[in-house]
């Protein structure tokens, strides 16, 4: 089976999510990559070095500069004329593009796969991760989005893919990019961090996030996450959100501070290797999934923990 993997990039480097998608694709067959964007020569070179990669299709055109689904989907649909599967990381870009491609091909997409069980059989989470469904496709071509935390990352070196330019399918003229606001952070990216310190509504305000959560995270070299309640209350920006509707993470250690553990939040972090919960309510649902729990006031415990580390 020939698979085409969407390369998630920021214009300069290949993002980690791509590497998990490559691993998923390698379980299906031959791996081809698609690098689309404007001025993406360096990205294409990096993509060609990913272990196991065959061909790297490069679509370099202004129409692809901001990965608008309206322009990208027809390009992918055309390339799918000689591929059997389109494999996409479950990033916001991937989730935006893949279903548009699936509909153009008249196939049903399988979202957020956790494992490859056969040529056309996959597992995926439903109901906020409260159930795992095994589904089999009867479509002629597959469109899959891949949950990054469920697959190991392919090695970034060792491959020798051949780079091949593909012609542009042009600007469809129905959408234009206006602007973007990317939150700046010195800390490790949430979805790839080994340790995550996450805060909830109990933090009470954004100052407490800065003075209590962040120093602990910095001491541990950890990424900072948050529950939806903390995001909605405006303590932190929304891209900190861990959960069904935010980011799905699976770090080595997840430290949940002042987070009750609602279904929605657990869906985003319950595959973490070790979960540590600090909460004053000993009946909080978070303690049902936590490996290590400490019942008490976070305003006393966390500063003490930070100072003793």
């Amino acid at each position: 089976m020939k698979t085409l993997v969407w390369v998630e990039h920021d214009g300069a480097a290949v993002k980690d999510a791509t590497l998990s998608a490559v691993t998923a694709a390698s379980q299906l067959g031959e791996i081809h990559l698609l690098v689309a964007g404007q001025g993406v020569g360096a990205v294409a070179d990096a993509a060609a070095r990913i272990a196991g990669v065959g061909k790297v299709h490069v679509a370099d055109d202004a129409a692809y500069a901001h990965a608008l689904a309206e322009n990208i989907a027809p390009l992918v649909a055309e390339l799918m004329g000689h591929h059997d599967a389109f494999v996409v990381p479950s990033t916001s870009t991937g989730k935006n593009i893949a279903p548009r491609v699936a509909a153009l091909l008249d196939v049903m997409q399988i979202s957020d796969i956790l494992s490859v069980e056969g040529d056309a059989t996959f597992t995926r989470p439903i109901y906020a991760g409260n159930a795992i469904a095994t589904v089999k496709s009867s479509d002629a071509k597959l469109v899959l989005t891949v949950r990054g935390t469920a697959f190991a990352k392919a090695a970034t070196e060792g491959g020798s893919g051949t780079i091949e330019a593909v012609g542009s399918t042009g600007d469809k003229g129905v959408s234009t990019f206006v602007s973007s606001e990317i939150a700046k952070s010195e800390r490790p990216e949430l979805t790839s961090a080994k340790i995550i310190v996450s805060g909830g509504r109990a933090l009470q305000n954004s100052e407490n996030f800065t003075t209590i959560i962040e120093p602990l995270a910095d001491k541990l070299g950890a990424g900072v996450g948050a529950s939806r309640a903390a995001v909605d209350a405006g303590y932190v920006p929304n891209d900190y959100q861990v959960g069904q509707t935010g980011k799905i993470v699976a770090p080595e250690v997840y430290i949940a501070i002042g987070i009750s553990g609602a279904i929605q939040h657990l869906a985003g972090m319950k595959d973490s290797k070790t979960i540590i919960a600090i909460n004053k309510d000993e009946d909080a649902p978070i303690f049902q999934v936590a490996d290590i729990g400490l019942v008490g006031d976070l305003f006393k415990i966390v500063p003490e923990l930070t100072s003793k580390l």
Partner: peptide, 10 residues
């Protein structure tokens, strides 16, 4: 809402 922040399209 996108990974890392927000973007506006027309």
């Amino acid at each position: 809402e996108i990974d890392g922040g927000a973007e506006t399209v027309e």
